[in-house]
Amino acid sequence: MNIFRLIGDLSHLAAIIILLLKIWKSRSCAGISGKSQILFAIVFTTRYLDLLTSFISLYNTCMKVIYIGCAYATVYLIYMKFRATYDGNHDSFRVEFLVVPVGGLAVLINHDFSFLEILWTFSIYLESVAILPQLFMISKTGEAETITTHYLFCLGLYRALYLFNWIWRFYFEGFFDMIAIVAGVVQTVLYCDFFYLYVTKDGKGYRFSI
């Protein structure tokens, strides 16, 4: 554990909680892509199956359980409790174009051809592109609420901090995981355009194009 990793995890947690609170307080999921949230629920589920097979640390277990719980709670709020406010017409990204190639890639390029390892690899690849339906939705409607931009900023910051974490681990532990690093770079790059707008517009809600 290093400072980049810790702040990254907390940033990730902040993003998840910001989104949950936004939906809960406003009683609305307008402007939020349910598809991205389903993809994140799939990401956490397929990655954290090792909860059942191995114990790493109390921190690790707690965070995994919280992430999975929050992901399903978010999906529940969007598709069940507040589904009347869900803007399905604008959430039109074809997720099969992500899930199918990512699944194929996970089978082809992985550390070990075993069930759990392929699911873990699938989750890493899927996470790197899971935000695309959300970004697509914002580009389609041309606007995002301020709170939604804070959510996206925290989510992007999390993966950017993980890049520094991997640089740290490479230098001080001689450790690197090429699958995680390449996917992490791809994921971070997807946020770059958004980061630029977020900083230059001072995080205000804005009309937004990609």
């Binding site: 990793r5 790493i56 992430y67 550390h111 873990w120 450790f175 995981d177 090429m178 995680a180």
Partner: peptide, 10 residues
């Protein structure tokens, strides 16, 4: 290349 090495990460 470390196998399954980043499983301690989230």
């Amino acid at each position: 290349l470390a196998f399954s090495g980043s499983k301690d990460e989230l």
